[in-house]
Design a protein around this nucleic acid. Sequence first.
DNA 1: TTTATGGCTGTCA
DNA 2: ATGACAGCCATAA
Length: 126
Amino acid sequence: MAFHLQPLLHLHHPYAGVYAVVKKIPRGKVATYGQIALLAGMPRAARQVGLALRITPGSIKIPWHRVINAQGQISMRQHDWQSGGDDYQRVLLENEGIEFSAAGKINLKKFRWLPPSPPSLEMPCC
DNA sequence: TTTATGGCTGTCA
DNA sequence: ATGACAGCCATAA
């Protein structure tokens, strides 16, 4: 059929918006869950972003590791903190040049990704 | 439908 | 700086 022209974009997925935003985070930068939620048009739905990333289909390739919590730390699934897989995300980030403090935190002032159109800094055209 | 639970966040002690 | 709490909102039971 003529409808498989969009096989790479999972537009049917309820969190397609989230994935689209996460995909925009450039290498060497990070964003917070709340930030992603805001950009995806669902303010204060930070937890849903976490859920979205958690259930991300393997067929969707996104830099999920560049999404961290507002404290500048890595959030991990309850499932992982006991299996010790928490360092994985950190390794990926360090690989991109992101630095961690001794307490394992990232300086958001320095590494936070600033989206192209910052929300509500100015009034819409006059 | 009601309750519980999150890869969260801001506030307050 | 750290810990407890209350909002937040989509899933899972």
